[in-house]
C-alpha cells in the first residue's frame, strides 16, 4: 500500500555553527583605525578587556597587544580606555 521506493530525506535542523567573521570582514565598517604605539604601552590590557569585538589580541600574558584589522570596527574604545605611559596613550585613532 505504501510507496516503498520513496527516498526518506534527513531533516534539516536549524543549527548554526560558531564561525569567525560570521558577519563578514567587519573591518570594512571602519572610517578610523586604532594605531598602536608600542613605546607607550604598559601592558595593562584595559584595551583587551573593553574591546567589544575581541579584535585586540594578546597571544600570551606579558606580550604586547595587537589589533586584528580584518574585523576591528573602529569604535575607538581601546583608545579611550588606554591610560598610556606618562599620559602618552599607546593607541590613537587615525583616518583610514
Amino acid at each position: 500500500m505504501m510507496n516503498e521506493d520513496i527516498e526518506l530525506k534527513d531533516p534539516v535542523l536549524p543549527l548554526g555553527r560558531p564561525t569567525l567573521g560570521s558577519a563578514g570582514e567587519t573591518g570594512d565598517w571602519r572610517t578610523y583605525r586604532p594605531k598602536f604605539i608600542e613605546e607607550n604601552c604598559i601592558k595593562c590590557y584595559k584595551c583587551w578587556l573593553s574591546c567589544p569585538e575581541g579584535t585586540i589580541r594578546v597571544d600570551a600574558h606579558g606580550e604586547y597587544p595587537y589589533i586584528d584589522y580584518i574585523y576591528c570596527k573602529g569604535c575607538g574604545i581601546c583608545v579611550h580606555v588606554c591610560p598610556g605611559r606618562k599620559k602618552q596613550k599607546a593607541l590613537e585613532m587615525i583616518p583610514e
Binding site: 560570521s22 567587519t26 569604535c75
Partner: peptide, 13 residues
Amino acid sequence: LRGNFACAGCGLS
C-alpha cells in the same frame, strides 16, 4: 567570535 553583527562600540558585547 569577532566579525559579528554588533554595532561598533556595543555595550552588550
